[in-house]
């Protein structure tokens, strides 16, 4: 039983990172109607930024995390300018390929700079918390706290701020929002920037949890987040949080009790199951007709 709860706790920690990346996917999709395939690469950028800062300058988390988030944010703004803005309002496949091309560039660019092998991110947070035999490291708790904070922040932004409301207006209908004087380019930047900054934070979290970063971490990670977003629906912040954490937990349990090699199949399993059970229902929010 202890082992079970331990797996659950580990799963929740990883899953919250899935959820953060999925949230950005969903936010960008619902506002800009663009599938940003380069989105998970910004998590990778965040992870490598953490590596660079920690190796060259300082391992102080209060410096490492903000700089990593900043790097991901800048990468996101670049993606927005290069591939999202020019493809806005076009067929979904256009943005798919434009951002997919950038994703290939980013993966291989990182490989060119840092090599294929994982690099070690040497930042440590000492100490663990133990509750009834179940252990959670302070590092885990910290990244989880970060994820929750971002969830709450994103929710507040979309619901309660002026720009958040403009964002929602744009997500309904671009022409109408434009007629009402909303600057769509600005909303696009804000949305992608916010999404990728969160992804950057998730990337750092992963780099810290696993003490490493690899050029292709975005690809694996991104697929799973994408599935979370699809299963939960792109507009449901709480739903994405829930599905992300659920996926993390299921993966941990499958890896712990069945076989580690099946871990990466869990996401696809969920996807197939959901497609089978309610093929149309959950995706109602994808109609943009």
């Amino acid at each position: 039983m202890e082992q079970f709860f331990q797996q659950v706790v580990n799963g929740v920690m990883v899953g919250s990172s899935y959820a953060i990346v999925a949230l950005g996917f969903g936010l960008t999709f619902s506002v800009m109607h663009v599938l940003n395939l380069a989105h998970p690469e910004t998590a990778m950028v965040g992870a490598f930024a953490a590596f660079v800062v920690a190796t060259l300058f300082t391992t102080n988390l209060l410096v490492v995390i903000p700089l990593a988030v900043l790097a991901a944010l800048l990468a996101g703004l670049l993606i927005e300018r290069l591939a999202i803005r020019p493809t806005r309002g076009r067929h979904i496949l256009t943005s798919f390929i434009a951002t997919g091309g950038l994703s290939i560039v980013m993966q291989n660019g990182a490989q060119r700079i840092f090599g294929v092998d994982p690099v070690r991110v040497a930042v440590q947070v000492e100490g663990v918390q133990t509750v009834g035999g179940v252990i959670a490291s302070n590092m885990q708790l910290m990244t989880f706290g970060l994820a929750v904070a971002m969830m709450v922040g994103a929710r507040y932004y979309v619901r309660n701020t002026r720009w958040g409301r403009a964002t929602r207006a744009v997500s309904e209908k671009h022409e109408v929002a434009q007629a009402l004087g909303v600057d769509i380019n600005r909303v696009s930047q804000l949305t992608v920037g916010l999404s990728t900054a969160m992804a950057g934070a998730a990337g750092v979290s992963l780099a810290l949890l696993h003490s490493q970063a690899t050029p292709f971490m975005g690809a694996i990670f991104g697929t799973k987040s994408f599935v979370c977003m699809l299963v939960a629906g792109n507009r449901h912040i709480e739903g994405i949080m829930f599905v992300g954490i659920l996926l993390g937990v299921l993966e941990a349990l499958v890896a712990g009790y069945i076989s580690a090699s099946l871990r990466d199949m869990v996401a696809f399993g969920i996807l197939v199951l959901v497609l089978y059970l309610r093929p149309a229902g959950i995706f109602g929010s994808y109609e943009h007709d």
Partner: peptide, 22 residues
């Protein structure tokens, strides 16, 4: 080129072309 360089170019070409010719 090296494999990585080749893919960087490949990705860049994809992005540019699809924007120029959707």
């Amino acid at each position: 080129f090296s494999a990585a360089d080749r893919y960087i170019l490949y990705g860049a070409v994809l992005t540019v072309i699809i924007i120029v010719r959707p």
